Computed example of a mutant assay.
Amino acid sequence: MAGTYKSQNYSWNDISIAFGGRIVEGIEEIEYTAKQEKNVLRGRGGKGHKITRGNKDFEGKITLWQSEIEAMIADAPNQDLLALSFDIIWSFTPNDGGATVTDVLTTCEVKEYKKGMKQGDQNMLVELPIIFLDVKHQQ
């Protein structure tokens, strides 16, 4: 019989996100996806015999204040945000004393960015689609 486990729920207030050597205050959204190519290996009969696995891909997005984007551009090679490579450290620390969980997204790069504002906006938010090489869970 499988062992039991205790699950823990986390909220936005429980997370800290760091990259560029500091915890980022001006972040409003983060998400990532891990994908792997998978197919059914077929042979004799009508049912599959095995699931084969191929390449893994990782992507996501972060939504930041403009001031955070400007800081990233200042640190980027030739002030080119698309040339910047960085790790994202995403930690969940619940206020109730539960276990801290940290995911590390390694070698992140921005795929594209778009700046814009409209009348009445009080802050510019910039969504950055990212790709990265690996996710290290529960570090």
Results as ranks from 00 to 15, higher is better:
residue 11 S to H: 08
residue 11 S to C: 03
residue 13 N to W: 05
residue 13 N to F: 12
residue 16 S to W: 01
residue 17 I to Q: 00
residue 20 G to E: 04
residue 21 G to A: 07
residue 21 G to S: 08
residue 22 R to N: 05
residue 23 I to Q: 13
residue 23 I to G: 04
residue 24 V to Y: 00
residue 24 V to F: 06
residue 24 V to N: 02
residue 25 E to V: 03
residue 26 G to I: 04
residue 28 E to H: 13
residue 28 E to M: 06
residue 28 E to R: 15
residue 29 E to D: 14
residue 31 E to P: 01
residue 32 Y to H: 15
residue 35 K to L: 08
residue 35 K to W: 06
residue 36 Q to L: 05
residue 39 N to I: 02
residue 40 V to Q: 12
residue 40 V to H: 12
residue 41 L to F: 09
residue 42 R to M: 13
residue 43 G to E: 14
residue 43 G to Q: 10
residue 44 R to G: 02
residue 44 R to Y: 08
residue 45 G to E: 07
residue 45 G to H: 07
residue 46 G to I: 08
residue 46 G to T: 13
residue 47 K to E: 10
residue 47 K to V: 02
residue 48 G to F: 11
residue 49 H to R: 08
residue 49 H to A: 05
residue 50 K to E: 13
residue 51 I to V: 14
residue 52 T to Y: 02
residue 52 T to S: 13
residue 53 R to G: 00
residue 54 G to D: 14
residue 55 N to F: 10
residue 56 K to D: 11
residue 56 K to Q: 15
residue 56 K to N: 12
residue 58 F to H: 15
residue 58 F to K: 02
residue 58 F to L: 07
residue 59 E to K: 15
residue 60 G to V: 08
residue 60 G to H: 12
residue 62 I to V: 15
residue 62 I to Q: 01
residue 63 T to H: 03
residue 63 T to Y: 02
residue 65 W to Q: 03
residue 65 W to P: 00
residue 66 Q to P: 00
residue 67 S to V: 09
residue 73 I to R: 11
residue 73 I to F: 05
residue 74 A to H: 09
residue 74 A to F: 11
residue 76 A to N: 07
residue 76 A to R: 06
residue 78 N to S: 13
residue 79 Q to C: 07
residue 82 L to H: 07
residue 83 A to T: 09
residue 83 A to E: 14
residue 83 A to W: 10
residue 85 S to E: 09
residue 87 D to H: 00
residue 87 D to A: 03
residue 87 D to W: 00
residue 88 I to C: 02
residue 89 I to R: 02
residue 90 W to D: 00
residue 90 W to M: 00
residue 92 F to Y: 14
residue 92 F to Q: 02
residue 93 T to G: 00
residue 93 T to C: 04
residue 93 T to N: 10
residue 95 N to T: 10
residue 97 G to Q: 07
residue 97 G to I: 08
residue 97 G to N: 09
residue 100 T to F: 04
residue 101 V to C: 00
residue 101 V to D: 03
residue 101 V to P: 01
residue 102 T to K: 04
residue 102 T to A: 05
residue 104 V to N: 01
residue 104 V to P: 01
residue 106 T to L: 06
residue 108 C to M: 06
residue 108 C to F: 01
residue 109 E to W: 13
residue 110 V to A: 07
residue 113 Y to A: 03
residue 117 M to T: 15
residue 119 Q to H: 13
residue 120 G to W: 11
residue 123 N to I: 15
residue 125 L to H: 05
residue 125 L to Q: 15
residue 126 V to Q: 05
residue 127 E to F: 06
residue 130 I to T: 09
residue 131 I to A: 14
residue 132 F to D: 03
